[in-house]
């Protein structure tokens, strides 16, 4: 009598995408962060349309007024509406972050790929360059670069972008070195594919998850540093309503008019927080190896 045995069934197949999707949804904090970032983007795009007052309009009668119906967040030391300034300032914040990250991603990835793939003396030169960039403690490089380029928001963005390059380069380089030894890359080389094709088709796609995780964190850092530079007077120059510059004003007047400090500081922190949380959430999903954090 033939006995049917069904002990060798395998579990139902769940695709990787489905599992990741479940994780994203379970991660409520990531969702909230996305919502906050979405709000920032909306503020940047539509803010100026909804701003109740002209952020540059000086009105000495209404100096340092607490929040009221006419001025939702109150006014600063020159009578300008803080709420409108925050809305306008969101554009600069978003712009600064985007440009800094773009510069970092573009140049950093390029250098990293080059260093990891070609190795040899090219790699050594690139690594020396990266070591130099990293040899300056974190804010100092940015401060000096901004000074060289002339204090302005534009210089700040470029300086921060340059600062992020070594981080991308290092990560991409180590990823490239690992991937280079993978069998599918060896196979492609032997099949006669040229180097650029291999880089673009095999190595780069495998680096994308690292780039994404690094980018969210770089974005957060960029917002932070833009604000810091604005505060120091080296970044956004008055009368630009950049949030960091607004906190500089706030510092002077916090004792008599805390709203000048509170609102820009709150928005700076909120957005950095959102990007950091998002970065953590994405890292949980995309890079299981780093889940220990």
């Amino acid at each position: 009598m033939k006995i049917k045995v069904n002990a060798l069934n395998s579990p139902p197949y769940k695709s990787l995408f489905y599992l990741n999707f479940c994780r994203i949804c379970k991660n409520k904090i990531s969702v909230i962060s996305l919502a906050i970032i979405g709000m920032l983007v909306l503020m940047a795009i539509f803010g100026p349309i909804f701003a109740p007052n002209n952020p540059f309009k000086i009105s000495l009668i209404h100096r340092l007024e607490p929040p009221s119906f006419g001025y939702i967040f109150g006014t600063d030391n020159l009578g300008r509406c803080i709420f409108s300034r925050i809305l306008y300032g969101s554009r600069w914040t978003l712009l600064a972050g985007t440009i800094a990250v773009l510069i970092g991603v573009a140049f950093g990835t390029f250098l990293g790929l080059l260093a990891g793939y070609l190795q040899g003396w090219i790699e050594k030169i690139i690594m020396i360059f990266i070591d130099l960039l990293l040899s300056l403690p974190y804010l100092i490089l940015v401060v000096v670069l901004t000074a060289i380029l002339g204090p302005s928001l534009r210089s700040a963005m470029i300086a921060i972008g340059i600062w992020t390059i070594p981080y991308y380069a290092r990560v991409i380089r180590s990823q490239t070195l690992t991937l280079k030894k993978a069998e599918f890359v060896e196979a492609a080389t032997m099949a006669g594919e040229n180097n650029i094709s291999i880089l673009l088709r095999y190595i780069l796609p495998n680096c994308i998850s690292q780039i994404i995780v690094l980018s969210t964190n770089s974005f957060a850092q960029a917002i932070l540093m833009t604000a810091a530079l604005g505060f120091l007077g080296l970044g956004a120059q008055p009368p630009l309503p950049e949030w960091g510059a607004m906190t500089a004003i706030g510092k002077e007047y916090v004792y008599i008019a805390p709203q000048t400090l509170f609102f820009p500081a709150f928005f700076i922190c909120l957005n950095i927080l959102a990007f950091n949380f998002l970065g953590d959430g994405l890292r949980d999903i995309l890079d299981p190896r780093m889940r220990g954090m």
Binding site: A227, F231, L261, A265, I268, C269, L273
Partner: peptide, 9 residues
């Protein structure tokens, strides 16, 4: 997420 200068102030 809190920059040093904001913490300081």
């Amino acid at each position: 997420s809190i920059p040093v200068f904001i913490l300081g102030i």
